[in-house]
Design a protein around this nucleic acid. Structure first.
Lengths: 121, 121
DNA sequence: TGTATGTATGAACATACGTACATATATTAT
DNA sequence: ATAATATATGTACGTATGTTCATACATACA
């Protein structure tokens, strides 16, 4: 701890800080941080990022996504499952074609906010 | 491509879609998507998420962050470097203590938006 | 019923990544 | 100058992760 263990006075200060809810208890419930991190992690893969972005434009089927990304169908399918499991995308089946779209509008906002950060908006 | 290769008519349709800027060119510059994904990935680790969240409250030195997270100093230091490299945090030195804080306000917005998604706000 | 098409999934592999441990650097105090 | 404290960094290691290839499943069509 900062300057801790130097003298008794310092030790007292350290204890005060501990009691003042700064150093003793974690800033945020670990459960919440875990979910946050998990969501960010899912968005943190180039393939998935591009899929999400494509879906932010329009509903698309798996093969169209693969075409857009120039990726193999199996890659897209695998990653769509990841996005599905995180409730980031939803899907509907029409015959043998499965159409995917974004699950809620928060993701688009996330993207825009992140774009602002990387100075691309 | 969807229903492609069936007949010449279908092939024509496919070519039209290709020219209409839907299937031919990628939805977003790969450079931009790469940066986006990189940023999300950096936020997608529980340790870094907790660091960012702590810093969203107040400026903190390395040892205080380590105390808050119950993590080793070296772990925090390593992850702070990652955050530094992505321009997510900035720092200032005061004696032998280095204080870290968020680099811009977009990150807080990112967090809030993500919290809304995981239904915690 | 059999074939073709669209999608999902399993296994294997290479690689990326987070952490722990040791150690180096920087600054302050004695 | 030496010791102590705060931080940074290098290495090693176990694990997680994305992709590839093969294959299974589901639906439409002949």
């Amino acid at each position: 701890m900062q300057y801790g263990g130097g003298s008794k006075w310092i030790a007292v200060i350290f204890m005060k800080k501990n009691k003042s809810n700064r150093l003793s208890k974690p800033v945020m419930p670990q459960e919440t941080t875990r979910k946050l991190a998990e969501t960010f992690k899912v968005l943190g893969d180039p393939t998935r990022t591009r899929i999400i972005y494509a879906l932010s434009m329009e509903e698309l089927c798996v093969c169209d996504i693969a075409g857009l990304l120039g990726a193999e169908q199996s890659v897209v399918s695998h990653q769509l499952r990841v996005l599905r499991n995180m409730n980031l995308v939803k899907y509907r089946r029409d015959g043998r074609v499965v159409y995917y779209s974004l699950d809620d509008e928060h993701i688009k906002n996330l993207f825009d906010e992140c774009l602002r950060h990387v100075n691309m908006l």
